[in-house]
């Protein structure tokens, strides 16, 4: 934007219009108590925020702590607001924006069912090897592949399998963690 530097931060052209939409991975550490997930997703739906991916499970059993990983989209201002709104929820210990704090490690697991015979079947198996996907169930007419990796890798694998007899897909959503020795 070729605007002169404004004196104040506060004058802006139309709410949200000037900012680009970004994708962010939020890592939320919560007390694993009943209803905590409902509080988080209720906040997203109630305030009109997006959820692209969501995973949750207890990660520290003795402390009853769960980690919720949410991939969301919005303008930087909206993302900031999402973080503050999440921090208002009582059972939340902390919210980290992994995307903002450096390149986060993001992994996903998918189970992919493919059916077919002949060349297509052989081709599916060959591609699976390239993607390091494991065969976890099979018959003469189908495979179920287990594949892990970045979401983009899984997207790619699914795209290829679509041509080779894709039946259905189940994905876990993204689990993410910050790089380096510090905790996120």
């Amino acid at each position: 934007m070729n605007m002169a530097k404004p004196v104040s931060k506060s004058h802006y052209v139309g709410p949200g219009a000037a900012q680009a939409i970004v994708s962010r991975t939020l890592s939320i550490l919560v007390d694993n108590e009943p209803g905590v997930l409902a509080r988080v997703i209720g906040l997203f739906s109630g305030r009109g925020y997006n959820i692209d991916s969501l995973t949750v499970t207890e990660t520290e059993h003795e402390k009853h702590l769960s980690r919720i990983t949410i991939v969301t989209r919005g303008t930087p201002d909206v993302i900031e607001q999402i973080k503050h709104q999440l921090e208002r929820l009582i059972p939340i210990h902390r919210v980290r924006d992994l995307t903002n704090e450096g390149v986060a490690l993001e992994r996903e697991l998918a189970l992919i069912k493919v059916s077919g015979k002949g060349d297509k079947r052989i081709e599916a198996l060959r591609i699976a090897e390239i993607f390091r996907a494991k065969v976890v169930d099979t018959s003469t007419e189908h495979f179920v592949f287990e594949v892990t990796g970045k979401p983009s890798k899984i997207e790619e694998f699914i795209a290829i399998m679509t041509e080779l007899g894709l039946v259905e897909v189940s994905r876990t959503g993204i689990a993410a963690i910050g790089r380096g020795p510090a905790s996120s």
Binding site: S10, D77, H84, R88
Partner: peptide, 21 residues
Amino acid sequence: GSQKIQIDIDPSSINKNVKVD
């Protein structure tokens, strides 16, 4: 044309509708 100071106990109330300096 103003520069804005905002005092609030709730961080989510700050920069929600209007950006402050």
